[in-house]
Nucleic acid binder design. Structure first.
Lengths: 150, 150
DNA sequence: TAATAACATTTGTATATACAAATAAAAATA
DNA sequence: TATTTTTATTTGTATATACAAATGTTATTA
């Protein structure tokens, strides 16, 4: 369905405006679907994101700044996100021995297990969406998104 | 910059995953820019969105359900959004005389003035982004986003 | 080396989001 | 017309986001 029909616009929209609305709307649709996937695992989108960043460290701990800069949403409150993950015992947090300002966050075995359970479901979600486009179209979409945001 | 560099990914990403991350990341970048625009006007993104929906009614009031279905983010709490707009005297709210369950929300003169002040700034924002692409590319991006979300 | 600046993270506060439950009115139906 | 169902909106509650200010540590420099 076209974006103007999705939001039942009563006014004529410029192409520039349509692209912006379309971008936000599409992202909301796909992230709502993703949140459905995460719900039974009691994780928010950004909590999942942090876990994946930590797994990407391959055993090495990550400090708060590293997590921050790798997050998709740069404005999240990393401290409180990690607090939540700590309560669920999905990560551990230690003061860096060589620099007491820094915290070292590491994903636990339990955290890795949650991700492993999620992996096939997440991949399926990604593929269901990706299958709506050809490989060339996916590459084109990536190219256009990168170019668009500047 | 490519999405894998933006989020400093340490692992290899599939094309399907890259598109999804790219979509979220791009939307965050452009909506952060938009929030900067709204900040001096003391409006949140969704408050602005509601005002625009109400202006689109061209004098006719809108009830809560109409606002809800036209919003980009379907999970917002429309009641509390309208509460905030009421406090700022940008809208008025009345019980529908023919159906007491319904509320009639109308944008005020003050609300219209705020939108009019914002119009040129918002259009500039849209155009700065749109100018990164050709007309054909913008149309292609719209097409791909619509097809991608299913 | 004492004072100051820079860095890394946390805390506070207001608002927004997500979603279930409650309320209240209207419509359907027995 | 009394009861039930549906519709429209609000309220409650937990969590998330946005962003400024505070805290504590390390590095710089006078």
């Amino acid at each position: 369905m076209k974006i103007e029909d999705e939001i039942k616009s009563t006014v004529e929209l410029s192409l520039a405006k349509k692209v912006l609305l379309n971008l936000s709307f599409t992202r909301n649709v796909v992230s709502d679907k993703f949140l459905e996937i995460l719900k039974p695992f009691d994780l928010s989108g950004e909590q999942y994101n942090v876990l994946r960043i930590l797994r990407g460290q391959k055993g090495k701990p990550a400090n708060m700044s590293i997590i921050q800069e790798r997050m998709i949403s740069k404005n999240s409150n990393t401290t409180r996100l990690v607090d939540k993950l700590l309560l669920k015992e999905l990560v551990i947090r230690n003061i860096c021995p060589t620099n007491k300002r820094k915290m070292e966050i590491t994903i636990t075995e339990k955290g890795l297990e949650v991700l492993e359970k999620l992996d096939p479901i997440v991949i399926e979600h990604e593929n269901i969406l990706a299958n709506n486009l050809t490989t060339e179209e996916l590459e084109q979409l990536n190219y256009l998104l990168e170019k668009y945001r500047n």
